[in-house]
């Protein structure tokens, strides 16, 4: 079955950003520069947090605006990036209403969630989960 990252209960988020660091660690690096998930406060930590991550749209607007076909819809939702085709124009970033397409400053290319689920393992409070999605 195809899966997607789901934000199950954002009110439990403590803002530790462990998921953000996990995402860059997939590449064998530390820090946050290659992360496709982000956590920030709702205008002050006392108000709680928002988790920004690709929600695996069935008809992704980011793919629709990609001028080189580098972003292709993924089976079950979301997109897959073909980095070789990408010219780093940033249209996809503009197109995503969630702000869920991030930018890798080192390579000047977008970073998009692949729904691998690595970050889910590092959420101490089950804010994040992996959810099965229909592919129909």
């Amino acid at each position: 079955m195809v899966k997607r990252i789901a934000v199950l209960d954002v009110d439990k988020c403590t803002g530790c950003q462990s998921c953000v660091f996990a995402c860059t660690r997939r590449y064998g690096e530390a820090g946050v520069g290659k992360s496709a998930i982000f956590v920030r406060s709702l205008g002050g930590v006392e108000r709680g947090f928002i988790v920004i991550v690709c929600r695996a749209c069935k008809d992704p607007p980011c793919a629709k605006v990609c001028p080189t076909g580098a972003l292709k819809p993924r089976r079950g939702g979301g997109v897959i990036l073909n980095s070789e085709k990408c010219i780093g124009c940033g249209m996809c970033v503009e197109a995503c209403p969630l702000g869920a397409i991030f930018w890798d400053e080192e390579n000047n290319k977008p970073v998009v969630c692949t729904h691998c689920g690595y970050c889910v393992n590092y959420c101490p409070h089950e804010v994040l989960g992996l959810e099965e999605v229909s592919t129909g």
């Binding site: 462990s18 064998g28 690096e29 530390a30 820090g31 946050v32 520069g33 080192e106 590092y122």
Partner: peptide, 21 residues
């Protein structure tokens, strides 16, 4: 700021990270 930091051994890095976590 927003950046990545290089590590010398990615596998060992992840293992130690997991142990602490």
């Amino acid at each position: 700021g927003k950046r990545t930091l290089k590590v010398s051994n990615a596998k060992a890095y992840r293992e130690i990270y997991d142990e602490i976590y």
